[in-house]
Nucleic acid binder design. Sequence first.
DNA 1: TAAATTGGCGCC
DNA 2: AAAGGGCGCCAATTTA
Length: 559
Amino acid sequence: MLVTRENFEQALSQITSDSLVVDTETTGLHPYWRRKAPADKAGGIAIKSDAFVGYFPVRHAGGQNIEQGQYARLIERMNEVTTIVNHNTMFDVNMLAQDGLDRPGRTVDTMVGLHLMNENGSKKLKVAADKYLGGDSSKEEHGLHQLLRTNGLMVNQMWRLAPGQVAPYACQDVILAERLDAYLREKLYTPRLYDELNSFAQMLGDMEYTGIKVDVATLTALANEAEAEASASLKRIEAMAGGPINPNSSGQVRYWLHTPDATEETLSAMKDPRADEILTYKAWRKACDSYYGPYREWMDENHVIHAGFNPCGTVSGRISSSDPNLTAVPRMSTEYKVKKVFHARPGKRFLEADYSQAEVRMAAHYTQDARLKEIFASGQDLHSAVAADMGVSRQVGKTINLSILYGIGAKRLGISLGVPKRKAQEYLDTYNTNFPGIKKMMRKAEGVASERGYIQMYSGRRRHFNCADADPKDAFNNIIQGGIGEMVRRTMVKLRRTIPEAVCVLQVHDSLMFEVDEDRVGEIAPDIRKLMEDQPWCTCPVKVDMKTGQSWGDMKEVK
DNA sequence: TAAATTGGCGCC
DNA sequence: AAAGGGCGCCAATTTA
């Protein structure tokens, strides 16, 4: 039904269940997308409770909205329920937070269920509904798009249509989400994981809502420095080239330096001052264009960046981050110090906990390679121990440790070590002789992936290979990568439950960043470490390194 | 001219 | 025999 000022009371009285399906039609794209679109709000809200389905227009351009006081009461009512169900639920929760919605006790997101069911497939509600529930939802949605088109509107401008035009489609969405949830609970290979992922998705939504603070003075200073360095470098380049040139144009660089490409690898190998200067310019320019510049635009009025964390962002089971992508902030070893712009809020400190050599430890667990397990069990330095076994330098050992799990070949390893392919092949052979478990498991994983159609992680989560764009060759890497994803995911939820005073603000795959009261760092750190290292399922010891600081760019080790 | 692709590069 | 896994984003370049 379409809810109006007149029938509002009647509609509200029909919201009786403790779990609601809630879907917003927004007046923009995203509550935090200050960069891509204006920060906007709910235009209308579809709600399903038991047999009731209604659309509450709140900001439709042509009027016919419910009263502000009525909307406040609707939000109040939503704050009383324990569960909110939808497709991509945290989007709606964070959108409605702008209108006073509290953090819900529990959320259910059909999107994470779909991702669990088949991480290769589409995560769109209508496509999934057609596929799993039968019917023609996609086609029905066509009617809405038609309506938008004839009014010259974009898909995110439904609030410009009359409430009565939007209501049937909005109501359809909450009905579909509820049916899809029921379907997933019945058909998923593991409903337990669906619940787990829902808790995790909720936590990621909370992280996005919390955000991370930028120190504007630092940002300005670093941005100015980078701009100055970039333009000085460009002047030097143009002097050498004898005229204007765009160092970001791979075509122009190739032409000037007679190289096959303009990658860092090629240019740095040249030992040519012209190539070095190009690299200098590109690095400073990237700092401006990919970090400092965008960060300014992503900040809200409190200088907080609300990056997105997507639980359905990768096929391996890792999360992805975007707008901006906070999993790709340059390390402090680069010349530009981007991490320095992130500061803990006043009275708080960052506490960063990294799983040490997570991938190789996970490989030791999955392969049961005797020597690898021995190295970790004895607590030796991995790279040195591997190098010693192989009779090579630590650098070679380290490079191989880092690349072997990606299935690197002799050619690529040779380039990365700066040795002939033959020599690189010798290294690989030596490695495989010393650590035979890896290659054996790679073959096995590939076989299982192509024959059974999926591989399974320790948590029970599956990575499917029964489709064209999933390559069984990636099975081994995916089980390692995904295994870490599962470990970190479960640990994050457990941490939130048992150490709520450690507020998680970032996850960078095998690393977690918390914000805690500055005077409680010493007390909380050991608890975090203990919980993170407690992985009884893992047959290889798990180790966590911890750091603390006021800025992400200035962290000191915690013993 | 806008959309799509490519080249390149940041992270684990 | 040979085989570089998973992302997001920017600017340049090509395509429709």
